[in-house]
């Protein structure tokens, strides 16, 4: 009974973690950008979904659509206003662009947080669930929304896999991540590929933000923590490795759930943090990363 409960609950949380971190790892894999405003994208989408779905009363589905749109807009803004100007800057030495992207996105995250807190206050809200009600699954009562969340997450993950591995566009993305210069030499326009990948990132972050917001609630104050946990999962799995990210998300999700059920809910985060330090120390490239 307890085992099944832990399995179900851990699965739901882990899947959300995976989806939440996926865009972060994708954008790093393809364009080498660590977006420290990542949590901001998630929360903006969730807040807009809440505003449209609940405050304006247009319902969960229109709200979710607006949220995803907000995710795309915010991702584009991150790229066009912050990342691209830094990457193309003539005054910033090439060797230090990475640091400037980090600092720039960090500042952008602060701005998103302040804007949200000004418009919506810091009070946490929940996004309207797509499917209300509960399901009795082998004797464990679980909200239907939890199943929907897991199902949507896996569909999105599947689509992304197909996109990367089965389409021409995906091959270009892969090529861009492995050898950007080679791709340019072949006559492809890198900037278009990057733009595209930021749009995909926006969609992923939008969906993840809305699902997180309906399952766990959201608030502008969550932005740094969300960025932090995506960062942890991605590094634990190996930077830029999509399968590593999925694996790490499940490792962290289940460790947290086990701790919460078997030890104490208030110690939930501690074992995962310790594990993170240990893994980084013993295997700095992450669980599934290549050096």
């Amino acid at each position: 009974m307890l085992v099944l409960q832990i399995l179900i609950d851990g699965f739901a949380i882990s899947t959300l973690y995976a989806l939440g971190a996926l865009g972060f790892t994708l954008i790093f894999g393809v364009s080498g950008v660590l977006n420290l405003a990542h949590g901001g994208l998630l929360v903006v989408s969730a807040m807009i979904a809440y505003y449209v779905g609940t405050r304006l009363g247009l319902g969960a589905y229109i709200g979710a659509g607006a949220g995803i749109l907000a995710g795309i807009v915010t991702a584009m803004a991150t790229y066009l206003l912050i990342v691209r100007p830094i990457q193309r800057s003539r005054v910033i030495p090439a060797r230090e662009r990475e640091l400037f992207v980090l600092t720039g996105t960090l500042l952008w995250g602060v701005m998103l947080q302040e804007m949200l807190s000004y418009i919506f206050t810091d009070t946490p809200i929940t996004v309207k669930p797509l499917l209300p009600g509960i399901v009795d699954f082998l004797g464990v009562t679980t909200p239907a929304n939890e199943f929907i969340t897991a199902a949507i997450s896996w569909v999105v993950l599947g689509c992304l896999w197909l996109l990367v591995n089965r389409t021409k566009m995906g091959k270009q993305l892969l090529a861009a991540s492995i050898n950007p210069r080679g791709l340019t030499l072949l006559g492809f326009e890198l900037s278009r590929i990057y733009l595209l990948v930021w749009i995909i990132y926006g969609v992923l972050a939008g969906i993840a933000g809305i699902l997180l917001g309906s399952f766990l609630g959201t608030s502008s104050e969550f932005i740094p923590a969300l960025t932090g946990s995506a960062f942890s999962i991605v590094v634990l799995g190996g930077l830029g490795s999509v399968s590593g990210t999925l694996f790490a998300a499940y490792v962290i999700g289940y460790i947290e759930t086990l701790t919460a059920y078997l030890v104490s809910p208030s110690l939930r985060n501690v074992p995962a943090l310790v594990l993170l330090i240990l893994v980084l120390y013993i295997r700095p490239q992450g669980l599934l990363g290549r050096r």
């Binding site: 230090e96 400037f100 720039g104 602060v110």
Partner: peptide, 15 residues
């Protein structure tokens, strides 16, 4: 918010 915007502009214009 304003301080963050100012800081961003400064580092973009003058690294």
């Amino acid at each position: 918010l304003v301080v963050a915007i100012m800081a961003l502009i400064v580092i973009m214009v003058s690294p």
